[in-house]
């Protein structure tokens, strides 16, 4: 039977060149390596371009703006008034409301799924939570103005504005529940079973074990969930733009029943186009400045959350 493959025989007389693969196969392998490395480099390039874009745009803004105008009565970009505290307060108010909605519900769901739920229930609920995470934020914005404000909030507040921070905050809260529940559940499940058994072994009831043993052990992970959830809420755009209003112009105010623009809704308003052409050119540049602020805030929060999660992973 003839040798099926063209190959030099085994045995003495073997030369180094016999132990080489064909140029074609080696070239493919080397080429693939470079292509994969190039793709990895491209992801770094995306970050670099984001930083370059927001930083250079923000610099253009800072170098031209009169600093007094950053602390004037409110956010009126076309009139050259860029009061940052107006946007900051609104962003923080809405995000805090969102956390008040999302943390109890998200943590509750996480504890239930991790400590109480039957595996079958868990198997259904986990994908449901994933499904919830994919609800488009515009839909929640519409939900806020068509249901949360008119059908719920008007029962409690007589003179609530059609656009208001409270409804926006609640809707953002609904949006971040799945994220918070997911991170919290991971943190709870990272707590070793041995700890729970040790507690049960001392005669503790399940509720005691959950609250006194499991929750403290998972505390850093739960903190991370809050931080990352807060970061997600600060960065949420569409819900706030639709439900809270005030993205184009806002007077400083603290009332939750009033409308108010945030970093993100101000950016969306500026990006809607009209400001690019008409009015103060500085207004358009402020878009990048806000982007830079938002990028920096969320980056710090996410890195903090990431750090905590990583430390948790090493703990057990």
């Amino acid at each position: 039977m003839a040798p099926p493959m063209s190959t030099t025989p085994h045995g003495p007389g073997l030369k180094v060149t016999d132990l080489r693969t064909s140029v074609r196969r080696r070239a493919w392998s080397a080429g693939a390596r470079w292509a994969f490395a190039l793709a990895a480099l491209a992801t770094v390039l995306v970050s670099a371009l984001i930083i370059w874009t927001v930083a250079s745009g923000a610099w253009t803004f800072i170098s031209q703006v009169a600093f007094d105008n950053l602390t004037e009565i409110g956010w009126f970009p076309r009139r050259g008034l860029f009061d940052l505290s107006t946007l900051l307060v609104n962003s923080v108010q809405i995000s805090v409301i969102a956390m008040l909605v999302a943390v109890p519900s998200g943590f509750g769901a996480a504890i239930y799924l991790s400590e109480y739920a039957h595996p079958k229930v868990r198997k259904v609920m986990k994908p449901t939570l994933e499904l919830l995470a994919s609800v488009p934020s515009v839909v929640l914005g519409v939900f806020a103005i068509s249901f949360i404000t008119p059908s719920i909030l008007t029962n409690f507040f007589d003179d609530i504005n059609f656009f208001n921070k409270l409804a926006a905050g609640i809707a953002v809260g609904l949006l971040v529940i799945p994220l918070i529940a997911s991170i919290a559940e991971d943190a709870l499940r990272a707590v070793p079973v041995a700890l729970r058994e040790a507690s049960s072994g001392l005669g503790a009831r399940k509720v005691t074990t959950s609250i006194r043993v499991v929750l403290p052990a998972a505390m850093s992970g739960l903190m991370a969930a809050i931080i990352v959830g807060f970061s997600r809420a600060i960065g949420e755009t569409m819900v706030v733009t639709i439900a809270s209003g005030g993205g184009d112009t806002s007077l400083f105010n603290l009332a939750l029943t009033e409308s108010g623009g945030t970093f993100t809704s101000a950016m969306a308003a500026l990006g809607l186009g009209t400001d690019q052409v008409a009015g103060n050119n500085l207004a358009f540049q402020s878009l990048y400045f806000l982007g830079a602020l938002l990028f920096a805030i969320t980056l710090v929060l996410n890195m903090l959350g990431d750090l905590i999660v990583r430390r948790l992973q090493n703990k057990y």
Binding site: G13, V16, L19
Partner: peptide, 17 residues
């Protein structure tokens, strides 16, 4: 050494080995 060829040298391709 494999049949007179040093296995661990740069000229040898582990794939063919």
């Amino acid at each position: 050494n494999y049949h007179g060829v040093e296995l661990y040298q740069d000229e040898v391709d582990p794939v063919e080995v």
